[in-house]
Design a protein around this nucleic acid. Sequence first.
DNA 1: TAACTATACTCTGTTTTTCAGAGTATAGGC
DNA 2: GCCTATACTCTGAAAAACAGAGTATAGTTA
Lengths: 101, 101
Amino acid sequence: MDAMSPFELDATLHQPIRTRIAAFLIARGEATFTELKKELAITDGNLESHIKKLRASGYLSKEKKMGASKRAQTVYSLTRDGQESFENYLETLKRILAVKF
Amino acid sequence: MDAMSPFELDATLHQPIRTRIAAFLIARGEATFTELKKELAITDGNLESHIKKLRASGYLSKEKKMGASKRAQTVYSLTRDGQESFENYLETLKRILAVKF
DNA sequence: TAACTATACTCTGTTTTTCAGAGTATAGGC
DNA sequence: GCCTATACTCTGAAAAACAGAGTATAGTTA
């Protein structure tokens, strides 16, 4: 989105909880609120605020899905922009940590 | 220091400015306030607060050095604990981003 | 079928963090 | 002796992170 220096780390993604959310969703494709909460072991309010931040950046999408049961369940996944930003974030990380990877 | 889950990212190091400070110091050994400021392109106050945070965690040392000139110059470098925490941080990152590295 | 429980959130408010800019001290150059 | 650059520190504002209470509703049990 905005032009960044090759060493500037995306503040939306470079945060302890959000890096994990993004990596988890890249690996798994999608997850429910509860799955994320279990994985991260954080409070509802905290998860909610990170989801909100990710959505405000346009990185996360929320979709209602009809599963086998009648109940609609909401799943979260990365948007295309979120996936691209995550890729760029990884590239920046590699540049910064070049010595180590 | 404190026991962390294998996926918890050290909050002192997993922050846009501080990750870069640590990586820069790992690569270069030491740096002055001005060198860091130039590298990061941030304000004095902002750099100061990140240095303070790193020092509060015991990761950064500040040393007065007598160089060629008469003037004593202060150099910053990672403490042993800082180096170890950075190594651990990298391991955690690799675990979380396994898919990608 | 009414009460209970679990899921899936949102809202509010507090604490902590991040950041900019002004302020201070000192050394070296003109 | 004055000016400028370096090397910080201090203060306060703005934003972020977080916990816990609150709300809505679907499914479960008595």
